[in-house]
Design a protein around this nucleic acid. Structure first.
Length: 428
RNA sequence: GUGGCCGUAGCUCAGCUCGGUUAGAGCACCUGGUUGUGGUCCAGGAAGUCGCGGGUUCAAAUCCCGUCGGCCACCCCA
């Protein structure tokens, strides 16, 4: 009997590793609420056209990375390679955006690629979309969101790279310039780049294979119209006022066709994988129309959870249980069971063994499960007491059963969560 | 789609070059080291179709061919 494996490019996450994923989601969700983003749920697959049109026909993603298949009704559907197109489709379906809609999402995305470090066929993104706003203020907020998330996720030395690729008219002027530039050096270009000279010349900028040729090429930020230019200046000013460090990267264009004006990426400089970007975003004022909606300005980002976890400092070693209950004598099992039930109902994380084991083995288990404390149910139970031991300090005392909850709460790391990274900028 | 490296216990790997007695180690796991106490230490134990298929040979984890899988890089992106 052969053992089944997770499909190529997918991976299982099991305890205790999965604890980091739980934390990653909790922190993301909490931050989204703090920033005022509501949750949006969309299908994990869509009509293929949603992505073909939404993401852009000449992108790598659409050309060869889509998980597309025909369902039993003969429809062509595609597992989502990213979520922005879905969120916009959903907003249009719901009647369009009145005023503002701030949405956040979290979940698996799918791209058919050769897997490597930080690149899987099923990977996870958490993202936010600020729909209905054209202000630089909204760009700044979304950029800040990603930056704060990485801070809270303990990803060290993050560089925020920003650029502006202008509005469609700016881009048209720019494209004719760079097309001419590339045509002059046509023979030096890679095959991919040659093809893009016609279809999407700006994308040649982020081709590593053509880096040398491209180094001297004109850059999109030299062609910004006055509106895009002012917008970009305001975005940069906003980042500075929030003390968010960033660098200008004039060859940053990003691989999805729907972007205009501001684009950015988060790159941890001490991360040792080829797939260096852990998140990115941009403004996409034209996307609603492409998908058949009313013109609606918007800006959003996506954070790559898998890569953030690779880049973040590992385990904190925090307790995973508030208490482990040790049962000295099987005869008191039903008492132990009731105690555990009561503690769990008080929102404490508590567990105990389901089989008869030595006290020593149970203590070992408590340690392995990273319990903060052990409660021993033995002879003292008859007198209404338990032995309570703090596993970190090794201190042990007998306490009254009615004091247990208060005793544990005083030690719970979870209930007293410290507010991380209070880097309030100076007020002027 | 292209290239490189690697598949031996649950995990990380040694052994393979110069084929030869019961295939090893560390970690993890289980049980003990007397009375109800972990994280350290000591002793013992359980655990492997040597990825799979074929070939060469008296004999293959070891040599040859094929195949499947994994990892990393290119490409691209989260």
């Amino acid at each position: 009997m052969t053992i089944f494996r997770a499909p190529k490019g997918t991976t299982d996450v099991l305890p205790p590793d999965s604890q980091r994923w739980r934390d990653a989601y909790r922190i993301f969700d909490e931050l989204a609420e703090q920033f005022g983003y509501g949750l949006v749920l969309t299908p994990m697959f869509e009509d293929t056209e949603v992505f073909a049109r939404g993401v852009g026909g000449d992108t790598e993603v659409v050309e060869k990375q889509m998980y597309t298949f025909t369902d039993k009704g003969g429809r062509s559907v595609t597992l989502r390679p990213e979520a922005t197109a879905s969120v916009v489709r959903a907003a249009i379906q719901a009647g369009g955006v009145q005023g503002r809609l701030k949405a956040s999402y979290w979940g698996p995305m799918f791209r058919y690629e050769r897997p490597q470090k930080g690149r899987l066929r099923q990977f996870y993104q958490g993202g936010v979309e600020y729909l209905g706003s054209s202000t630089p203020e909204s760009d700044v907020e979304v950029i800040e969101f990603g930056y704060r998330y990485l801070e809270r996720m303990n990803v060290p030395d993050v560089e925020v790279r920003v650029n502006s690729i202008g509005d469609p008219a700016d881009r048209a002027r720019y494209e004719s310039e760079i097309r001419a530039f590339l045509n002059d050096r046509y023979e030096d270009l890679s095959d991919d780049a040659k093809r893009r000279v016609v279809s999407n010349p700006m994308r040649v900028l982020d081709s590593k294979a053509d880096a040398e040729v491209v180094a001297g090429a004109p850059k999109p930020d030299q062609f910004l119209g006055s509106e895009a230019s002012e917008h970009f200046a305001a975005v940069r000013e906003g980042l500075e006022s929030l003390a968010i460090p960033y660098s200008l990267d004039s060859s940053l264009v990003r691989g999805l066709d729907y972007y205009n004006r501001t684009v950015w990426e988060y790159v941890p400089t001490r991360y040792d994988a080829a797939q260096s970007s852990v998140g990115g975003g941009g403004r996409y004022d034209g996307l609603f129309e492409v998908l058949g909606g009313k013109p609606t300005p918007a800006v959003g980002l996506a954070m790559g959870v898998d890569r953030i976890l690779l880049a973040s400092r590992g385990e904190t070693g925090e307790p995973l249980l508030d208490a482990y209950v040790v049962l000295v004598d099987e005869s008191r099992r039903s008492d132990a069971r009731r105690l555990v039930s009561e503690l769990r109902n008080a929102s404490l994380r508590v567990d105990l063994t389901d089989v008869t084991r030595s006290v020593k083995a149970q203590f070992k288990e408590a340690d392995r499960r990273r319990a903060a404390a052990v409660l021993v149910i033995g002879d003292e139970w008859a007198a209404g007491r338990v032995a309570a031991k703090d596993l970190a300090s090794g201190e042990q005392s007998e306490i009254e059963t009615k004091e247990i909850i208060a005793w544990l709460q005083a030690r719970s790391s979870r209930l007293v969560r410290e507010s991380s990274g209070s880097s309030m900028p100076e007020t002027r």
